[in-house]
Design a protein around this nucleic acid. Structure first.
Length: 309
DNA sequence: CTCCAGGATAAAC
DNA sequence: GTTTATCATGGA
């Protein structure tokens, strides 16, 4: 950063009451002032397993990601974030993508009444739940099944490079449903998705045929109905459906239960071995409307602390 | 070499 | 309705 005093003298172009922050224009960047790692940590947010298209360059201390057909570069400073984007893109895309109008301090305060969650939250208090594009989320988590995060990231990068629209430099948008539905199998095979290649192609074809595959439709449905409808897609079972519901922002009541969440819940809460569906319902009932947030804090905590292994 | 990875599917119980 | 073998690929 150049000179904080200069920007402080300017009138903020917008207030963000949820964060208690203000947005300033500075050259061709935007400054979101008053953000500390304790309430928004880019590293933990991008690498806690909810998304797969962000990278970090430690030489420039810059995060680069692609979403909604836009490339964004970000920097985290001591008390502010630097957005390399226009005011229009910030307001139209990133403000919602980063969930900036939701008060995470209130959410964390509520969840920290639970002593176990308190430890998980204090381990990574800066995680925010991204509102990701519905189709990208669906395909990404179909690919995630029985895989690992490193490989998922490469699969999605390859898929975007081969089938997505070129944006700038080496960056490509996530492919459209039509692009995957019509893609030649030999091109998808280049991405080394394995047996999931058939899943994403059939799911994409079904999505192209549907006129209801959009956020508004699923958000208008009760959780169970949205989940059942998503599970009609090839490659979407209960866990993947919950990931789609949570990470695209359909409902924050979802509690995706993978091996790590199952382990941490069995070890720290339930104190015995149970089924996956038992853990999923238990989490939803225990954490209610905040189940999705609780899940992500617990998942990351379990993953990094190797709980239950 | 075997085992596992943010699971889903079809088939068997 | 609930368990179980199988699925393609890469890393440990």
């Amino acid at each position: 950063m150049r000179n904080r005093d200069v920007k402080k003298d300017q009138a903020p172009i917008e207030d963000y009451l949820a964060l208690g922050d203000k947005l300033y224009l500075e050259g061709d960047t935007l400054i979101l002032d008053g953000v500390k790692k304790s309430n928004f940590d880019l590293m933990d947010t991008f690498f806690c397993g909810q998304c797969f298209r962000w990278t970090y360059d430690d030489k420039s201390n810059t995060f680069t990601g692609i979403a909604f057909e836009k490339v964004l570069k970000l920097e985290q400073k001591e008390d502010h974030l630097v957005f390399h984007c226009s005011k229009e893109d910030f307001n139209n895309i990133w403000k919602n993508y980063f969930d900036l109008e939701v008060d995470y301090e209130a959410i964390k305060e509520e969840l920290k009444k639970d002593n176990i969650l308190k430890k998980a939250i204090e381990f990574a208090p800066g995680i925010r739940l991204l509102k990701q594009e519905l189709f990208e989320t669906a395909i990404s988590f179909i690919i995630s099944s029985n895989s690992n995060i490193k490989r998922i990231r490469k699969n999605i990068l390859d898929l975007s490079t081969n089938l997505g629209q070129h944006i700038i430099d080496e960056h490509y948008a996530f492919p459209t449903a039509l692009a995957i539905a019509q893609a030649d199998s030999s091109i998808i095979d280049l991405c080394k998705i394995g047996y999931r290649a058939d899943y994403i192609k059939k799911a994409s074809q079904a999505i192209v045929e549907k006129d209801t595959f959009h956020l508004g439709h699923y958000s208008s449905l009760p959780y169970e109905e949205a989940k059942n409808e998503l599970m009609q897609l090839r490659g979407v079972g209960p866990k993947v459906a919950d990931c789609i519901i949570l990470f695209s922002g359909i409902s924050m009541n979802a509690f995706p239960t993978d091996v790590w969440v199952k382990r941490v819940m069995e070890n720290l809460y339930i104190k015995k071995e149970v089924t996956q569906s038992y853990v999923q319902k238990y989490g939803q009932e225990r954490f209610g409307k905040l189940a999705g947030y609780a899940q992500q804090y617990l998942f990351y905590y379990a993953l990094k602390k190797n709980i239950g292994v």
